[in-house]
């Protein structure tokens, strides 16, 4: 097209040029908005880093940065798990319930922290996630209502089993999963989290399963007509979510040396914020597991920074709620067309 502009006498091109010219005024605006939205997470990370470095001297210390990474590791697995249902346009509100139920059930059956405890946590979390998927797929119910109910059910199971007490898992071997140092200075849970995370980034981007989940999120009826077994992939996505939440629970229990029925409440919010701020739209089909890591860094830095600045934990609830709503709003700006009907 540029060539045409250099040679004005060429008559066929003139027609084309006017068409291009009539479109161009609209294009820059749209591109600007989308690029802006795409870089929001990175800008936020940078902004938060600068603000907290200036307001708190402790923030930039090596020990605190490792602390942020440790916290991030657990959130990373939870949020990566949550990304799978969200990519499909579904949601899993039960991850807090899965955390407490899988930890408590496993610690009740095998409190000695051997390989049995590890396998049990992962298997139970996988099964609880799968149960969500089975209910959503077979009863054909909206995921938010199913997982709202299972959240309460799973949390109820954990409270019933522990009667409110923590179950200690005393084992050096178990504790070493998170707290050991394979690389001096860097706790193992960071390595585990990154390893598992990148494995699932690979699965979501390079396999048929991953692409189908995107397709279902993009337009479910089209995906179904293309011959994709939508129900099967819903069950798979919710199972993966359960498994990753289980992996997060494993690292968390290993780090704390216990399982408790009271752990789960704030994790759902943090995971949702991380998924949304990373750039995965709740309407589905947009974003990716790969992006979630940015959202995780934002939420952990924010939490750590607010803690260091002495912000009351109860005020943090309010701040997080505001961030969640604002995040959903900003991320879904380029995608508003999908949301004509707002229930």
């Amino acid at each position: 097209m540029g060539g045409c502009l250099v040679y004005p006498p060429m008559l066929f091109c003139a027609g084309k040029d006017t068409r291009v010219a009539s479109i161009t005024p609209f294009q820059p605006k749209k591109i600007q908005l989308e690029t802006f939205v795409r870089y929001v997470p990175l800008l936020l990370i940078l902004l938060l880093f600068i603000i907290f470095s200036l307001t708190s001297t402790a923030f930039i210390k090596f020990r605190n940065l490792v602390e942020i990474l440790q916290l991030s590791s657990i959130y990373l697995l939870l949020a990566a798990g949550e990304t799978f249902p969200v990519l499909m346009g579904s949601i899993d509100l039960s991850i807090g319930g899965i955390i407490v139920a899988s930890g408590v059930i496993a610690a009740t059956i095998a409190p000695y922290g051997g390989i049995g405890t590890v396998v049990l946590i992962l298997v139970i979390a996988l099964l609880l996630g799968m149960l969500n998927g089975l209910i959503v797929a077979f009863l054909k119910l909206p995921s938010f209502i199913v997982t709202l109910a299972t959240w309460f059910i799973y949390a109820g199971i954990a409270i019933a089993l522990t009667e409110g007490y923590n179950i200690n898992i005393r084992s050096n071997q178990f504790s070493n999963i998170s707290n050991g140092r394979f690389i001096p200075g860097i706790p193992n849970l960071i390595l585990w989290a990154l390893l598992i995370y990148f494995l699932f980034v690979f699965l979501s981007e390079k396999t048929k399963m991953g692409r189908y989940i995107f397709a279902i999120g993009g337009k479910e009826d089209v995906a179904a007509r293309m011959g994709i077994n939508v129900g099967k992939y819903k069950i798979i996505a919710f199972s993966i979510c359960g498994l990753l939440v289980g992996a997060g629970t494993l690292l968390l229990s290993s780090r704390l040396g216990m399982a408790s029925a009271r752990l789960g409440s704030s994790y759902l919010f943090n995971a949702l914020i991380a998924v949304v701020l990373g750039g995965t739209a709740l309407s589905g089909g947009v974003g990716g597991v790969r992006k979630t890591i940015l959202g995780v860094l934002i939420i952990t830095m924010m939490e750590n920074g607010m803690n260091l600045s002495g912000v009351d934990i109860r005020v943090q609830y309010i701040v997080k709620a505001a961030i969640l709503i604002a995040g959903v709003y900003v991320i879904s700006i380029p995608d508003r067309s999908k949301q004509t009907i707002m229930k």
């Binding site: 209502i145 109860r314 505001a322």
Partner: peptide, 25 residues
């Protein structure tokens, strides 16, 4: 819900978290 156009379950879930915090405060 009507202005920000976020689905109601998510808005009210977030508000639930904020209200828990506010009530405790």
């Amino acid at each position: 819900v009507i202005k920000v156009k976020v689905p109601s379950f998510l808005v009210t879930l977030a508000i639930m978290g904020a209200l828990d915090g506010a009530a405790l405060l």
